[in-house]
Simulated assay, not measured.
Amino acid sequence: MARIRCLHLADLHLGWAPRDWGGREAERQQERDSLLRKAVDLALDPAAQIQLVLIVGDLFESHRPPADLVAGVLAELERLVRAGLQVVTVPGNHDEITYHDSVYRKYGREWPGLLVTNPHPERIGVLTLGGTPCYLYSLAYTGGLTGGTEPLRDFPRGTEDGLHVAIFHGSLDWMAGERSLPLSTQGLAEAGYDYVALGHLHQHQVKTVGNTLFVYPGMVEGKNLSDPGTGFFTVVELGAGAPRVDKIPAPVRPYRQVTLDVTGMDDGRLGEEIKKMADPEAVVDFRLTGVLSFLPDWALLTEQLKRQYFYCEVRDETAFLDPAILEKWAEEPTLRGAFLQRMLRRMAAAATPEEQRRNYLAMAKGIAALQGGKARGER
C-alpha cells in the first residue's frame, strides 16, 4: 500500500473580524483571510508531496460570508483541483449547511472537489491516491435531520482493501455546553477506520484508540489572545505502517504571552525592560507581576506597551506596593506622608480582606493624585 500525504485543515474561520484592535481591525482581518492561500501554497509545493486536502468544518466564521471572500476561497480550491489534488470540504457549526442561505447551498454546484452535504454518516466517495483506494465517510450536520442530543455511535465502514478515512466536525463524546455534533469515540474506534480527521476543537490533539488514529489539527491562526491558534499546519501520512503526523510551521502572525516581574525595579528600569521586549510583529498578552516599589502611571505604561506590539493586552497582576516603601513614605513631613499615615491605620483596622483591598485602592488612587499620575483601574 502506497503512503499518502494529507493536509488536514479545520477551523480556519475565514471572515472573522477583530474588535477594538487600535485601528488595525481591517488589516488583521485581511491577514487571517489569506490563510487558505498559504495552505494551498503549501499543498502545491512539490516538496510537501500532498495528495489529499481535507477541510473539516468552519472554513468560514459564518454560514453567510461576504461574496468576495467566497470568490477568493473558490479560486484557491480550484488551484488545488487543477493541479490534480483531491479536496474534500465538510461544513462545520459556524458555517452550517442547515440554513437556506448557507454558503454551501448557494455555491454547492460550483464547489471545487467533493463537498459533503448528506445529513447522516455515509460513505461519500472513494478516491485513488498513489494507486491506493481511499474510502471516505462523513456527514454535514443539518438541523432537524442529523440529531445531536446524544453522541453518534453507528458509523459505516466497508470491508474493501485500502484506506478507510472518517471526516467529521464535532466533539468526541459529549461536552456539556458545546454547540457541536457529539461523536462517540468508542463508536468510531469500533468502526475500524484507519484515520479519523476531526474539526471543531481549536487545540491540536492526537490520540489513538485501538488501531484508529484521531486528530484535531486545531486552528492554525489565532483570533483573540484567548484563542491564539497553533501556528502550524497538520500533515498526516497514511498507508503501510503506522500513521505519521507532522507539524509544518505556518507563516502567521505570532501570538505570545510575556511576563515581566517588576519586583525591585524603579520607574527608569521598568521602562528599559519594557523597551527590550518590543516586538512590532507580535500579538501579545503582557502580564506585569511581582511587588511594586513605586506607583506607575498605569495609563502611560499601558500606552507604551501597546505602541511596541502589533496588538497588546496588558494585565496588571502585581501585588500591593511594598509595605516597607509605604512605611518610609508615611514618615515624610509631607502631605503624602500625612495621607499615608491615615490610610495605613485604616488598612490595619480593616475587618475583612475585601475592606482592606478597598482601602488599598483608595490609598493608591490618593498617592497617584498627589503625584499627578493615575492609579491602576483609572481611565
Rank of each mutant, 00 (worst) to 15 (best):
K106L: 11
I248A: 06
Q49T: 06
V314S: 09
H63R: 12
G131I: 00
S293W: 00
G241W: 04
A375C: 11
K374D: 04
A299L: 08
P243C: 11
Y309S: 01
A364E: 01
I248Q: 07
V73F: 02
E281S: 07
P323C: 13
L152I: 14
P65R: 02
D246T: 09
Q203P: 02
Q203E: 07
P217N: 04
A83L: 10
L44V: 11
G290F: 03
T128S: 07
A362G: 03
G130R: 08
V90F: 13
P323T: 14
Y107N: 01
R153W: 14
L335A: 13
I97P: 01
V262P: 01
Q341D: 09
R79Y: 00
G131R: 05
L340S: 06
L129C: 08
G177I: 05
A278I: 04
H13R: 15
R307C: 03
E272R: 14
W174A: 05
Y193L: 02
F339P: 06
G92W: 03
L127G: 06
T263L: 05
Y195P: 02
D68N: 10
L35S: 06
F286Y: 11
E178K: 10
L36K: 07
S62W: 08
E31A: 13
K306Q: 15
D285L: 06
L44C: 07
L181T: 07
L201G: 02
A324H: 09
V245F: 03
L188Q: 02
S226N: 12
M347W: 10
R3I: 00
Y135F: 15
T185S: 07
G148F: 09
A375M: 09
V235W: 02
V314C: 11
Q30G: 11
L85R: 15
E96Q: 13
Q304A: 13
R179H: 14
H94Y: 10
D267C: 02
V126S: 15
R24S: 03
H120G: 06
Y107S: 02
G22L: 07
I55R: 01
K365S: 08
H100V: 13
Q308W: 01
Y135N: 08
E313Q: 15
P280V: 09
R64M: 01
E355H: 02
F60Q: 03
K38F: 00
L326F: 13
A140V: 05
E110H: 06
R357T: 12
Y137L: 08
C134A: 14
C134L: 14
V81M: 12
L238D: 06
A17Y: 10
V258I: 15
G377H: 13
L321Q: 10
R315F: 07
V258A: 11
F155D: 02
R157F: 04
H13L: 13
L335K: 14
V196E: 03
R253S: 02
C312I: 08
G22R: 12
P296H: 01
V40F: 11
L326Q: 11
A176H: 11
A375G: 12
Q49W: 00
G231C: 12
G144D: 12
L172R: 08
P353C: 12
A10P: 04
V90D: 08
T98A: 11
E150T: 14
Y141P: 08
V258F: 09
L77S: 01
